[in-house]
Amino acid sequence: MSDRKKRRPRLRRALQVLAVLAVAWLVVDKAVAIVAPEPSVGHWRSAEGYAAYRQAYDDVMATLPEPTRVHDVATEYGSVRVYEWTADTGEEDAPPVVLLPGIRSGAPMWGDNIHHWVGQRTLLAMDAIGDAGMSTQSTPLSSFDDQADWVEQALAGLDLERVHLVGHSFGGAVATAHALEHPGRVASLTLLEPVMVLRGLPASTYLWSSLLLLPVPQSWKDRGMAEIGGVSVEEVRERTPMSVMIDEGSRHYDAVSLVPRTLSDEEWRSMAMPVRIDLADDASLAGGEEASERARELGLGPVTVWPETTHSLPMQAADELGAELPAYWAEHDG
């Protein structure tokens, strides 16, 4: 039996709720945006709600290596929280790696990955503007493409000339938007299960997510989340520090309702930087094999469909990505 098969029951219980809740709430946000399309500013609904989220956030952050620095970078859209782990002596001149999280996940989602990379080169993990986390929003985003602006302004505010940009899920879509608009800043682009940029979400995802908007029993909502994530209802109900954090963010934060778009062939082909795409083979929310076929036809690559993984790919394949991605970044440092 493979190591991943041995780890899979534990990983499914600990990680699948992250993917299920994050993508379910992405679809809920889209439905809310249809009802109330005016641009808005993300905010906490109450001080008590923020306190509950902050406790859960801190609990997850406590499992990560201690950051070297913590930045709050001013942009025209608000302040961006950035955690920095500085490279060991001898690696300071290599382009740093910037990590953009999935929706409701924030910088804490990268814990399993950062443990593999810390010290090898400078790492910077951001909380997104307009989403739950320690970033704060002051100005509305008028479209999803505005996501590229706050990322660019944060990178400029940190005096980063070129970076290796990595995004998971919603963060993969944000990273794609930034690379499209600001290619000179991006040494390489790594997309881990990026939602919607290669293919739209399956119709069944919208169907099951509709249960989260309706006044139905919690058991029905749990079934909907289970169907979205390809897990059992029991796994949805399993509570972990990460799932608690995401749940508190979903309950207490009024997020900006902006949904990624699928890029055209011409937009993909205009990207001059190396683009790496990693997809799941089970309950992929980025398009799975169909997305991989399109990416290969466009000449993107390497493109990998990881066996025995789901939308929680960065955590489920943390050991393998821990070795592969530093080699990929080093190959494209120049």
Rank of each mutant, 00 (worst) to 15 (best):
K221S: 10
P183F: 12
L258C: 09
V186K: 00
L165N: 03
E193P: 01
R199C: 03
L198I: 12
L165K: 05
V195S: 06
L191D: 03
E234Q: 12
A179M: 02
D247E: 15
T240S: 15
T176H: 00
V236H: 00
V216K: 04
V216A: 04
P217A: 14
G249W: 13
R239S: 15
G171P: 03
L198E: 10
R223M: 09
V174K: 06
R185L: 09
H182C: 10
W208R: 05
A203N: 08
G230D: 13
Y206L: 08
Y253P: 13
E181C: 01
T240M: 07
D254K: 05
L213P: 01
E234A: 15
Q218V: 11
H178W: 00
V163Q: 02
L191Y: 14
V259D: 15
M245P: 09
A187D: 07
P241C: 04
S264Y: 08
L191N: 03
V236N: 02
W220N: 06
G184P: 05
H168F: 02
G200M: 08
V231I: 08
A187M: 08
M196R: 15
L213M: 15
L180P: 03
E181Y: 01
D222E: 11
R185F: 05
G171S: 11
L180W: 08
D254Y: 02
G230I: 14
I228A: 04
W220C: 12
L211F: 09
G172E: 03
A179P: 06
G230Q: 10
S169H: 02
G167N: 03
P217R: 12
S210K: 09
F170P: 06
A175T: 14
S232N: 10
T240G: 09
T262H: 03
P183D: 08
Q218Y: 01
E193A: 00
V231Q: 06
H168M: 06
S209M: 09
V216N: 04
E235F: 06
Y206C: 04
S210C: 07
E235K: 01
G249H: 05
V186E: 01
D247R: 15
S250W: 07
A175V: 12
H182Q: 10
R251C: 05
S219D: 06
M245A: 07
R223C: 07
I228Q: 04
E248Q: 15
Y253Q: 07
H182F: 14
S243D: 11
S210H: 06
L211I: 11
V174L: 03
W220K: 11
S169A: 12
E181M: 01
M242H: 10
H252M: 06
G171A: 10
V186W: 01
A255S: 15
F170Q: 08
M225D: 05
S204R: 09
E248K: 12
R223Y: 15
V216I: 14
P215R: 01
G249F: 08
Y206A: 14
M196L: 04
S219A: 10
G200I: 04
H182P: 00
